Simulated assay, not measured.
Amino acid sequence: MASPRRRRSRKRTRRQLQGWGAVAAAVAVVWAAGHWAAVWPVLAGVLGAVVVCGAGWALLRAHRLAIGEDRQWRAQEEARARELSMAEVDALSWQDFEMYVAGLCRRDGCTKVVVSGKSGDLGADVIGYLADGRKLVVQCKKYAPNRSVSSQDMQKFVGTARLEHGADVALFVTTGRMFTKAALGLALRQDIVALHRDLLGSWVKGARLESLIPLNGSGGGTARRPPA
């Protein structure tokens, strides 16, 4: 059994340890408070930057998605509007189609535009002059929307457009969906401007003939003064 002196010594030691522990705790609190005042703005700034960057990325992604959807919608609407206009063109007779193409030429500044309106015209359904004086000869093929223009059709036009009619710009326009590979290759080699259904649709919707000529053939010929 411990003596009274030893018990008093232990109590005194315990009280000293408790005192020093309280002092250490107070020092720790003071230290933490002092350093926290310096650290918390940095932590707050980092946290704010993370939040801002995350929000900015989300907004940018949403913006890009919205732009993509808007472009897709516009493309679909333009295609739909073109098809609506082409549906009206599809309803024309072949004679009316030639008259319609002649009207598009006049709209785009062509002069002295005439329509043969008959068979046996040797590929010259429409003849006129561009604003720069080049002679324009147009072959019009009123085909079903899903039909293609064959190389035989193109060969006939190639053989007459320049030799028979002296065309500077030879234009083959069709309501068909496309030219066959052989027909398009011949058109490119012989400098025939080939306007399939989609390009015709653009022309119908307001695209200028001058902007369409270089797309499937350079047009050829040199500028000259329009005939009096």
Score class of each variant (00 low, 15 high):
L136K: 05
M86Q: 12
S119D: 11
A87K: 09
D132R: 05
A131T: 13
G109E: 05
L84S: 05
S93L: 05
G120D: 11
K118F: 04
S93I: 03
K135F: 09
K135D: 04
A87Q: 13
S116C: 07
G120M: 11
A124N: 11
D121S: 14
L65Q: 14
R74N: 03
G123N: 09
A131D: 14
D121G: 09
R82D: 10
W94T: 07
D125A: 02
L92W: 04
A79Q: 09
G128R: 05
G117S: 08
S116L: 01
D90P: 08
V114R: 15
C105Y: 02
L104I: 06
E77K: 02
S119L: 11
R82K: 13
M86N: 08
W73H: 13
A87P: 01
A75Y: 02
A62G: 13
L65P: 00
W73Y: 11
F97T: 08
A124I: 02
M99S: 12
T111R: 14
T111I: 12
S93D: 12
V138W: 09
Q95H: 13
D121C: 15
R71C: 06
I67G: 02
S119M: 07
E69W: 04
S93Y: 01
C110D: 07
F97V: 04
G128I: 05
S85N: 10
L122A: 15
V115A: 13
D121M: 02
L130C: 04
K112N: 13
G128T: 07
L122W: 13
F97N: 03
W94N: 02
G109F: 02
V115Y: 06
V138M: 08
L65T: 10
D108V: 10
W73D: 13
V115Q: 09
L122Y: 14
A66D: 14
D132F: 08
V89R: 04
